[in-house]
Design a protein around this nucleic acid. Sequence first.
DNA 1: TAGATTGTTAATCGATTAACAATC
DNA 2: TAGATTGTTAATCGATTAACAATC
Lengths: 209, 209
Amino acid sequence: MRKENISDAVIRRLPRYYRQLSDLRARGITRISSLSLGREMGITASQIRQDFSCFGEFGQQGYGYHVRELCEEIGRILGVDRDHHLILVGVGHLGHALLQNFPFAKCGFSVDAAFDTAPAVVGCTVNGVAVRDMDDVDEWLRGNPVDVAVLTVPRGAAQDVADRLISLGVRGFWNFTNLELDSTHPEVKFENIHFSDSLLTLSYRIAND
Amino acid sequence: MRKENISDAVIRRLPRYYRQLSDLRARGITRISSLSLGREMGITASQIRQDFSCFGEFGQQGYGYHVRELCEEIGRILGVDRDHHLILVGVGHLGHALLQNFPFAKCGFSVDAAFDTAPAVVGCTVNGVAVRDMDDVDEWLRGNPVDVAVLTVPRGAAQDVADRLISLGVRGFWNFTNLELDSTHPEVKFENIHFSDSLLTLSYRIAND
DNA sequence: TAGATTGTTAATCGATTAACAATC
DNA sequence: TAGATTGTTAATCGATTAACAATC
């Protein structure tokens, strides 16, 4: 029974399923039951079957799941096959690191350009991506619309940059500034990576156990 | 009524409270009620009062909460005041970016050293932190025990490095490799930053709404 | 066919929200 | 004092787990 409203908890588990299934594929395993998948991931078979049933019927009674097919299904659900496009804004140390290391293509994203304000980096090419002047972003986006912007700008600039990009049609923000950004447009999505929140939860757990 | 077992959901909200309260302090606001704090953060007053009551009684009827005091209380709960020590392992682009940009001190951590295997970086100093040879980590840690290791090594090396550091007494790992690490020691904590899981949830949400 | 395992419905558990007496 | 707001208990809601008929 396909569900209308998928809960956030389910959505957040999907990438883990996708990772685990990719790993199983790489190990040459072709079929798996919810029970053994659950054992490998430390969750219950019930939860796995409930989660998958939100999106369709991917298994077969008495057999389990075909690893490759299930992996591809979940990839499609996540949009990995859609060839999304993005730009990266703010080519400091972190922006640079993402351009150099992060496997955007494996997540289904093409990095079309990067932008910055500093003359020292504008005009450079980082891992095949041209760094352009932030002043040109309006004109450039009109000719090259993108789905997502990676925000690796300093705190102070974040909300302004986001507002500007929203007005230019950007719908998703991968936000690395330690700010809760928001927008009046409900269709604009923010996904935040709050490094310090993460380290603080670790701090809490080593201090209290 | 102080609680014995704090749920993960509550713990993950604490850093956000801490951030919001720090922001209120910076804005010169000295008192706040759960109702207005909730309005600012987009959560209910009930939840805020429930969350805080896990740790003690920080408010005052008819008045609300004293911002500075509450902020400091939550800081103590998170361990920000404990002067934890850490090392960073793997000085690639990302490790470099963290050393340069991340405010470890604001989270209560001192960065005592960094380690890598590449001769090109061993011996350098990045933002005041000496980069040492990974071969020397055993001896160094015996003289300089730390609470946490930041793992910014390549995937393939992650579990081995973690095992080695655990045997040397490291209790917490801030893990940037896209792997679920684990340990037989239950007191060892892993906090994972899965960049690609995060981007994939964004991909899902822009594709399905 | 018999055994295995699904998808789904029902039961349980836990987290969020509402209500309110206590009290500053 | 009267109004405001807490901490906590009770009610609700949603998510996880268990159970099982359907079926490969």
